[in-house]
Simulated assay, not measured.
Amino acid sequence: MNPAKYYIGIMSGTSADGVDLALVDFSNHEVSLIDHHYQAYHDELAHDITSLYSTGDNEIERMGALSVELALFFSQAVNQLLTNNHLTSSDIIAIGNHGQTIRHRPPQADKQYPFTLQIACHQTLACLTGIRTIGDFRTKDIALGGQGAPLVPAFHRYLFAKQQQDVFIANLGGIANITFLPQDRDQAVIGFDTGPANALLDLWCLKHTGNRVDNNGDWAAQGQVSNALLDDLLSDPYFALAPPKSTGREYFTYQWLEQYLSHYDISAVDVQATLSALTAQSLSMAIKQLSPKSFVYLCGGGIHNKHCYKQIKQYLSEHSVQTINTLNLNNNAFEAMAFAWLAFAYDKKIYGNIPTVTGAQCETILGVAFNP
């Protein structure tokens, strides 16, 4: 009988539209994506997730039930991925399960007890799939004084170990984040959340068009950017914070946007155009502060927003801006691959955090293992 050789990574982002799974082979010191599977959330499940992003009634009861429901949903997705590849649970070394973030409260001056919370019960997932599951990757970094995010830069460093120029990996999810991999190996790897991306764009689009996403950014492209509103939004203290820093949908909320909009009389489509510019400019400003000229690879669901992608390329005219697909890496699987790698790193005793990214006191192995 051949030994198990694959890892599965599971990632559900703040956009809460579905879950991505990556089947990955890390043998022979390579990172090989074998397959990717996506399973969309139905509207009720997506609503149940996003309703926990802010305080509300009966939260503990709803959270506990949803955590088990998500584990069941993830297990069904795992089984489908195995079926698609004619594999069984015995072929899998471990699952790296990020879970679904519902609260992220990293260390700040006004936070006496920082914490982070991801649901999708790891123990339930292990028992339902019969596969050892490794999860809870963020908590230890926070316990060591770090932000607990972003975690993917360690995977990016592993993947781009031989790069010969300054490289940025820029992820456009619900929140945008970057990893800076300097050509000079004596320079520190840096990574942080730059600000909102799909989270605000999708919220505004749903409210004013009934569509969950602005397809290709076509609606934003019809509007005019309000430079006054854009400058006002960029004046938020978060953008001026020096890294390490991280944020989430619980900060860049609809209420956050409304407090700025109350001073303006702007059409809905012009607000969408301005939010697109906010994503592009806050990301681009962060990149230009770190490197005047570099290779920038965009990933995440936001790369399908052609209008925002065009704006980023305009703001970063001195940089080479491409999507991660140009490196023969599957954009849809890329973040899930990172959590497969974090499970692999746990097993191989590889440090999963980077203190210059998260602000933790030291490097450490991340995760907790749950046996079926």
Rank of each mutant, 00 (worst) to 15 (best):
N216T: 15
C299T: 15
H104M: 07
D347Q: 14
T279R: 05
H29N: 15
N371G: 02
I303T: 15
D25M: 03
L82W: 00
P3V: 13
S27N: 13
T83P: 04
M63A: 15
M11L: 13
F155V: 09
A46M: 12
L159A: 09
E335W: 01
L70M: 05
I303N: 02
L234R: 13
I119T: 09
T274K: 02
Y260P: 00
Q255C: 10
D236M: 02
W219S: 05
H122I: 13
F339I: 10
L81H: 02
G18T: 05
V152N: 00
Q183H: 14
A333C: 06
A149M: 06
A22N: 01
D17S: 09
D214E: 02
E250P: 03
Q289F: 01
I8A: 00
N177P: 03
V19R: 01
D236L: 05
I34Y: 00
W204Q: 05
I175V: 08
F339A: 06
L181A: 04
P153C: 03
N97S: 15
A336C: 06
G352Q: 04
I354E: 06
S226G: 09
L45A: 06
Y260G: 10
L172C: 06
T358G: 07
Q147P: 00
D35Q: 10
N28Q: 14
P106R: 00
A286M: 07
W341E: 07
